[in-house]
Design a protein around this nucleic acid. Sequence first.
DNA 1: AGCCTTATTTGCATACGTTGCGAATTTGCA
DNA 2: TGCAAATTCGCAACGTATGCAAATAAGGCT
Lengths: 154, 154
Amino acid sequence: MRSPADLTEAFRRQNLKVTPQRQLLFRLLHGNAAHPSADVLFAEASELMPGISLRTVYQTLNDLAAMGELQSVSVGSGPSRFDPNTDDHHHAVCDRCGDVFDVYVNNIGALEVEGLNGFRPSATRMVFSGTCQRCSTLSLPTPDTPRPTRSSTQ
Amino acid sequence: MRSPADLTEAFRRQNLKVTPQRQLLFRLLHGNAAHPSADVLFAEASELMPGISLRTVYQTLNDLAAMGELQSVSVGSGPSRFDPNTDDHHHAVCDRCGDVFDVYVNNIGALEVEGLNGFRPSATRMVFSGTCQRCSTLSLPTPDTPRPTRSSTQ
DNA sequence: AGCCTTATTTGCATACGTTGCGAATTTGCA
DNA sequence: TGCAAATTCGCAACGTATGCAAATAAGGCT
């Protein structure tokens, strides 16, 4: 996604108006790697602009998506997550905390895909699921972590 | 997904009862490569068993998914699609007709994935989007397809 | 065959995420 | 400043899916 200033220009060029609500969302989204859902963005926006409507958040997200400034990412269940990263990339979703991370895959062309039977793919979306670093650190003790001994209660 | 007969056994072993509704759904799902949604399945089931409830369809799909006999596939927008194919495989979704196809990818291990930063993937889901064979055939005429001439009505 | 416990089915209400609609308001150009 | 056109907002409605509880059915036991 481009900078708030660039988006302001781009919106005006498309006869879209630049309202304070939109400017706030531009700021909240720019460089945001948290993959927020619409309601999370709504909560953040509400703190800075009480009274902003969830409807407006959806509206602006849809406008930005239509302009290719962000993509909506479906990660299994739950609400869509919005991603201002417009690089060609994919996602990893942590099974424990639900966080979404950007990952880059260089050699998708090297995949041996069978069963296309004439299907002509134009895009590939990959979602890795697993455990993020923080969640592994919290729950998987390192080798020298104190451990129950033979004499401790089971 | 196993055969209706095998599922009947498996359900009984888990103290799940084998009702006519479930048996019908076993039959409708076994070997079904159409990736039906719950409501499509409900429509099909209703023809053969008027009065069956949508709630029961969801219930049975959830039971089967919990037993690992089928997987629920999220394809962007729209309802979940159900897939009785338990092979390790992926999906292709036609942008035009919405049909979902199974595809097999052999060498996922060969992917060069960057940006994991300690994320430990345990599963990978890939969705190819594009145009299926039938949709390409219908809309992209071959070179010798009859074509409007200069004199024909627009 | 009949009984009894437990699981299931059904209909309805509800949850959730998202979009439609229309009146009131605001933007941005002239 | 004025005006047309776009936007915001609130609420209703939508599609998908689940919770709940009363009525029903399955299947083991006798």
